[in-house]
Design a protein around this nucleic acid. Sequence first.
DNA 1: GATATAACGTACCGACCGGTGCGGATATCG
DNA 2: CGATATCCGCACCGGTCGGTACGTTATATC
Lengths: 211, 211
Amino acid sequence: MKRSGDKRGRGRPKTFDRSRVLDVAMDSYWRDGVDGLSLNEICRRSGVSKPGLYREFGGEDGLMDAVLEQYAGAVLEPLTRLLESDRPFGQVLADLIASMTQAERSQPAGCLLAKMRGSPSRLGPATRARLDALRAGAVAAYAAWVGRGKARGEIAPDIPTDVAAAFLDTQFTTLLVQMAAGEDPALLRGQARLAFMGLTAASADGGSDRG
Amino acid sequence: MKRSGDKRGRGRPKTFDRSRVLDVAMDSYWRDGVDGLSLNEICRRSGVSKPGLYREFGGEDGLMDAVLEQYAGAVLEPLTRLLESDRPFGQVLADLIASMTQAERSQPAGCLLAKMRGSPSRLGPATRARLDALRAGAVAAYAAWVGRGKARGEIAPDIPTDVAAAFLDTQFTTLLVQMAAGEDPALLRGQARLAFMGLTAASADGGSDRG
DNA sequence: GATATAACGTACCGACCGGTGCGGATATCG
DNA sequence: CGATATCCGCACCGGTCGGTACGTTATATC
């Protein structure tokens, strides 16, 4: 039960801008990765003192956990919505690849989840737990998507749904990691076309690779 | 011009066991990754003093560079030989996947190159340069392999060779990274079958997945 | 023996890390 | 005006990092 903004308490009014710190931290972790980015640097970038940040989030683990929560709401949830579309499987897939491999983006390239998964030694227990939960949710969403594709005859039924779901997770993650590493988007699009040929073999149609 | 072992110089005889340190360091970096593994820890594990290690390798960058050189000779070179076999493309590919996804291995799971590429902030200039060179060599070897496969009609000629080579590098690296992360080998084999369906579509024959 | 040479490792350096003790600043309440 | 409650950030903690200064030890040469 947080008190609403109008009701001011007794002591000194709070100046700590939680949402701003969260924005800066998410962008920083997303862009630069969790390694080599210290709490001190986060404080520097967001103009907040370290004890202040510690009071608000309880430490590095709490901050990363909160960042992950924000990421889930602001990035993952809209993506999950896309998968629930009733458009043809191959079309949604092509759109996803196109959006992942476009050079100009309003958000940083890559995937925060992948960056965190790649540096498990720096993750606290809360962050790790939420990371696992988010990944499980993503794979479940992929599985549902594949299931609907199968029901429509867009995906060969002899491909196990769980394998296909894990495959989508793997391929998208790899694609985003390589985009974040600065690989050539056109080359990555070519690889993606090759990778997903097996899944969409029934109605395979590449389309143009212009970005 | 290193002097051969028999000719002893003037001063105190050397007790520093270079090859042992190199072995320990390669295994350590390979197994635990380059992050979270300090020079101090390497010294501890190999029973060498830090100044001694520093005198031999010139610092962390020199050590990693030497480790990479050893890795290239001991691991990458034999793998490259495999690609030069004149057996059918699909057969060599299946063998590679099988050997990468087997649970019991004499060497650590995963790929040292991938682990290093994933933590570029900890790499010095020499290590980085050698890493790039080794990767370029690997991609070139893949390209040659694909080229021979095309010449034999085992790979569709309309797939650009450079895309296929980059694709092989990407997929193998991803596979090894996930093996190192402890993913289920059977699930990874299923994903690999899905991934390479597009490349070997002409003569596609999965075979059994028993490992 | 004395001397020159070369490799040895203890014990230190400054930088940075995540985390915190604590006194000062700013508000409301009486 | 206190008194009380709350939030603020300076300055510090112990620990680890990569790197090194320097006195010690073991050999060959004289």
